[in-house]
């Protein structure tokens, strides 16, 4: 078996093979295999209840695997969960720091928990406070911070021990767009330092920014790859069909009309345009699109995930 030293070279930072996590009769994670490479920003997408959080918990040894193997940072999660935990950062979906403690007290607590010496702790805190811009909020109780600042504080706490890998479970859920963008900028700066990030999200634009993306649905990982690879999956680009991007003034009305037409397999609104998957043998005229601006489209990530989910539902 490979040692942690080898992991630094070749082995993926996360290597999951046929992982199954079962809670009684419920199969929360159903035969997932995936790998994440060093320094990569890996995005895990999927609807609520699809098993994203459970999978992360399984990767950290917080819930037991029913089957399969999980290796994180070169350690087997079943045997060496503590070693893994010493080297990963984790930011949960819900704000999970102590709301009655100030930002500084939360940082101090985790500094102690991660076993940093006084000097190490002081240096590292100063560095993180600068990176996250938390300085003005250090004496404020964590419960009174806004959503965005809570996330920054949580991230700072998760990074104190300089982890090589950070799990972020829906880090941007419920925070405003500006804070969302700032957080992602921060995440990319971390990735540039060689830290591997495993992020779950609902947002398609966030998925587009990830180096690689996995899509999990009802516990099954339906696809993984770069966003570009996913858009060219055979299951999404069915032979004999084409993707159209149609611009119009009343997209809602157009959507209704398209969905009623034969030969239209899927149609969704994207702002001012409608995205549609149609049979290739139907002309624009046959679809009633004369006079509208029609572009040959490629599927968006959302199209990909909708198509994959529908195919899975049919099974």
């Amino acid at each position: 078996m490979s040692s942690p030293a080898q992991a630094a070279n070749g082995e993926p930072v996360i290597n999951v093979r046929d992982a199954v996590i079962r809670f009684g009769p419920v199969v929360a994670v159903d035969g997932v295999s995936l790998h994440v490479r060093r320094g990569e920003v890996f995005g895990l997408l999927g609807p609520n209840g699809s098993g994203k959080t459970t999978l992360i918990r399984g990767l950290c040894g917080l819930v037991e695997l029913t089957q399969g193997t999980v290796r994180v940072l070169g350690y087997d999660v079943q045997r060496d969960a503590e070693r893994i935990r010493a080297n990963i950062g984790y930011m949960s979906q819900k704000f999970s720091l102590y709301e009655d403690l100030t930002s500084q007290e939360n940082l101090d607590f985790y500094t102690g928990i991660y076993g940093l010496t006084v000097q190490q702790g002081r240096d590292r805190q100063a560095q993180l406070i600068e990176q996250t811009g938390l300085a003005p909020y250090l004496d404020r109780r964590a419960g009174r911070l806004s959503g965005g600042w809570k996330q920054r504080l949580a991230l700072a706490c998760a990074l104190l021990h300089e982890p090589q890998l950070v799990f972020l479970d829906e880090p941007t859920a419920g925070i405003d767009p500006v804070a969302r963008r700032d957080l992602w900028d921060l995440l990319f700066r971390l990735a540039a330092l060689g830290i591997t990030l495993f992020v779950t999200t609902h947002y398609m634009d966030e998925a587009e920014r990830c180096a690689r993306v996995g899509y999990i649905y009802l516990g099954k990982l339906l696809a993984q790859g770069t966003p570009a690879e996913l858009k060219h999956l055979p299951g999404v680009n069915i032979p004999g069909t084409r993707w159209l991007e149609i611009f119009c003034t009343d997209s809602a009305e157009l959507l209704e009309r398209l969905r009623a037409r034969p030969g239209v397999r899927q149609a969704t609104i994207f702002g001012q345009s409608v995205h549609a998957l149609v049979d290739a043998d139907r002309s624009n005229a046959a679809l009633g699109l004369e006079g509208l601006e029609v572009r040959q489209g490629e599927p968006t990530l959302e199209d990909v995930f909708v198509t994959l989910s529908r195919a899975q539902q049919k099974e």
Binding site: G115, L116, Q120
Partner: peptide, 18 residues
Amino acid sequence: MARVSLPTAVSLQRTVAV
């Protein structure tokens, strides 16, 4: 590199932090 030492015995520092 991570500065964290591997978990061994009960750590007084962590207990005090809690």
